[in-house]
Amino acid sequence: MGGTPISKSISDVGGLLPMSDSAVATEQVPPRGSRRTGTLYRGDPGMWSWVAHRITGVLTFFFLFAHVLDTALVRVSPNAYDEIIGTYKTPVVNLLEVGLVGAVLYHALNGLRVMLVDFWSRGPKFQKPMLWTIIGIWVVVMVPGAYFMLERTARDLFGGN
């Protein structure tokens, strides 16, 4: 690897290297990251797939906290629950729900990819094509998904029959 100071590339990756995608670095592949900064991993699509996995996981966890609290209102009274669930039906929150579904779907698909990298003998070799595959699946599911989730809101907002 043309003059890359190996000690620097290791320390650069530091505590950010996730266990699974690190399999990428053990394969003899040409460096994908910036040669200028001398890292193999930083800037690679594999790194961004991990950053997105982490952000979507944390976001879903915080949503779950709020979600269990709002569901608990079924123990207070029917109208308390109906009122809070009413906010889920407003246009802005409806849009946020599409974002949540997109985040969870990405996290699930990428989680599956991480497992294939870990457990399937040819997983590390195919980690990159698998990334494009899950992005493709995500788009194919989200386009009709977003349509069905927003259809009613759009009709209420912009009229029609």
Binding site: P78, N79, I85, Y88, K89, V101, G145, M149, R152
Partner: peptide
């Protein structure tokens, strides 16, 4: 969110 009217049909009942 998607089947059978999605979020709009959710309520206590």
């Amino acid at each position: 969110n998607i089947l059978d009217g999605g979020v709009h049909r959710i309520n206590f009942a």
